[in-house]
Structure formats: C-alpha cells, structure tokens
C-alpha cells in the first residue's frame, strides 16, 4: 500500500470492510470462547502483573492479544514489548 494508499485518501483503516473485519474478529472470539472485550482487558492486566514479577515493568496497555485461526487449532498470540534492561 504505502504511497498509493496515501495518494488515494489515507489508506484503508477507515474503510467499512476493514471495520467489518475487525469487528468480526472480536465477535468471533467472544462467540467461540465466551471471551468478552472486558475479559480480554482484565486478562492483559493480570498477564502484566505476572510478567512484571520476572521482567522489567510490563504495561498492560502495551500488550496486544490477537486470536489466529488455524485449520486444526486456533492460537492466542500475545505481543509483549519489553523495556530494555540497563545491565545487560
């Protein structure tokens, strides 16, 4: 996308198809696993608590959790950015 996307009005982020896809991703997680957006937020906070016991402070706002569908199994993927420690 990049250049062409910018040329034609700022990318697809606001297009209704990608809004639909994002909404569906959330809804399907809820439908399949009874995991509401509120519960997902709570999960991130608790993950941050646990991780902070072992690692430099992890901020729950920085954790990104996504559900990936596979043919046999679904996967929960968590991306957790870490602050660099000073004494490496």
């Amino acid at each position: 996308m990049g250049f062409l996307g910018n040329l034609f009005g700022g990318g697809r982020r606001d297009r209704s198809a990608s809004v639909a896809k994002q909404r569906l991703m959330m809804v399907l997680v809820d439908d399949r696993y009874k995991l509401t957006p509120d519960m997902l937020e709570q999960m991130k906070i608790e993950m941050a608590e646990v991780l902070s016991r072992y690692l430099p402070h992890v901020d729950s706002d920085q954790i990104e959790v996504t559900l990936l569908r596979g043919e046999a199994n679904d996967h929960l993927k968590a991306e957790i950015p870490l602050k660099r420690g000073r004494d490496e």
Binding site: R15, A17, S18, A20, K21, L24, M25, R69, G70, D74
Partner: peptide, 20 residues
C-alpha cells in the same frame, strides 16, 4: 467493485475469519 473500494469484505477476509 465494492471489494475494490474497501467497502465489502473480500473473499480472502472471509476465509481468514472462518479458516475453512
């Protein structure tokens, strides 16, 4: 046409969501 304009879910989107 709607898919091209980004105003309709594409077949790829649907496959990715349903994984079948």
């Amino acid at each position: 046409r709607l898919v091209n304009r980004g105003e309709m879910l594409s077949v790829e989107d649907v496959i990715e969501l349903l994984a079948i």
